[in-house]
Design a protein around this nucleic acid. Sequence first.
DNA 1: ATGTCTTTGTGAACGCGTGCACAAAGATAG
DNA 2: CTATCTTTGTGCACGCGTTCACAAAGACAT
Lengths: 262, 262
Amino acid sequence: MATGRTHRPATRSRGIPEATVARLPLYLRALTALSERSVPTVSSEELAAAAGVNSAKLRKDFSYLGSYGTRGVGYDVEYLVYQISRELGLTQDWPVAIVGIGNLGAALANYGGFASRGFRVAALIDADPAMAGTPVAGIAVQHTDDLDRIISDNGVSIGVITTPPGAAQQVCDRLVAAGVTSILNFAPTVLSVPDGVDVRKVDLSIELQILAFHEQRKAGEEAAADGRAVVDTDDEEEAPPMRATPAGRKGPDGDMPAVMPA
Amino acid sequence: MATGRTHRPATRSRGIPEATVARLPLYLRALTALSERSVPTVSSEELAAAAGVNSAKLRKDFSYLGSYGTRGVGYDVEYLVYQISRELGLTQDWPVAIVGIGNLGAALANYGGFASRGFRVAALIDADPAMAGTPVAGIAVQHTDDLDRIISDNGVSIGVITTPPGAAQQVCDRLVAAGVTSILNFAPTVLSVPDGVDVRKVDLSIELQILAFHEQRKAGEEAAADGRAVVDTDDEEEAPPMRATPAGRKGPDGDMPAVMPA
DNA sequence: ATGTCTTTGTGAACGCGTGCACAAAGATAG
DNA sequence: CTATCTTTGTGCACGCGTTCACAAAGACAT
């Protein structure tokens, strides 16, 4: 999916490969579903199918955590849920602060999945003075001026940025200065952070563009198979190097609705 | 990235590696910004810095597209914007349908970045009859019953799923049946689709869990450096394989607010 | 206790992605 | 026209991630 990455390239944290870490939440979700159905054990084959991965990969992933399975039987669901939760650090409480309470920020604040697994929305922060005090998802929005204090007081180490792109880097800097060491960035901007700070980005626009690429390719192949039955016949280069952007549509990246263009 | 992946594993589409395709939107964004500032040319070093990648990687990426640079000078910004746009299929219009108009769906509908680059919100679809006709972001919400017709009439090939997880697979099946071949899934579920359909997923919960993992690791290392100055001293396994989930909190995955738990 | 059967855990091979380092190419100055 | 300087394009090597295939391990029946 949908997530680009912006973090340590090849640092195998405590022996667990990054690719494996990224799949653990997937396994955990599938296991939780099984747990709720009171299924006692599950084989690598079944669990892999539920998580949408290869069974060999799943077994190798689990092998990095230790030998938690029983040969001839499979894995104990409850035990595995606990082990993965512990490995991911979900047995403790993670206060999260969301900065930028626009459409997206508000949607995330209402996100039920936050509380469900160790994450707790500890604070909502916005730069608009008019928003201060307004309750969103039952929590009063606070002003950016108090950002440092809010982060410190609540012991927030994970920040979520849902501001317009023009404000993202500044907000990021302030979060980091206040002690945040993990950032989930929804703004379409490349954030630069000091070493030791993790940044992950969620970028709707990029995901759509990747889909468009494959969609176009599919259309092209189809056309080739149909013997050129579709609209435009350009395949290889031919078009003029025309200007793609209006150039100067507005000033520098200022503020706009919270969910922003690319 | 928030972006997990669920698509062809190693099918190099028309020679362009998947990893490169995923970075093209990043380059395009940086180039567009340069274009708006009327910068005529840019070196691989500068552009790489703006996009947050290695310059050698950028040059290799561009080499898959062809030789669009000039040695000793760099790349022509306008020309490159056009070439990448064309490669990504952004020179044409992509009507997109959003299914599941809750908090998140509405936020996406208001997303300015949709229209900005080839994507157009063609339809909003929701299962709640009470929502039908309600305008969201200037577009009237339509009922799920008409899904097939809506997709066909608008020529939608890209669908965005922002429904509760319990409804996601069913919605997905209907979208595919109606002709959609690319899906962006925000519901925390593994979607199964026939060959030829691309699925990308955006999963907030997974991203947060990955951050929590690294955060925990950082805290652990810090503790080790401080000579065990922090709270709980458990590092290696010791805890009881206790039950992690209440088990049976509610029925099967029904419906809940549009942005949902994991 | 022994044998059979199932499923895990992993050694090994392979392929993709990344980054280095440099030769080729062109611009620019004299 | 020649020399120099900049920057691209890429051959090559390395490392991570994936997958195969199988031996080891345990459950279970007899």
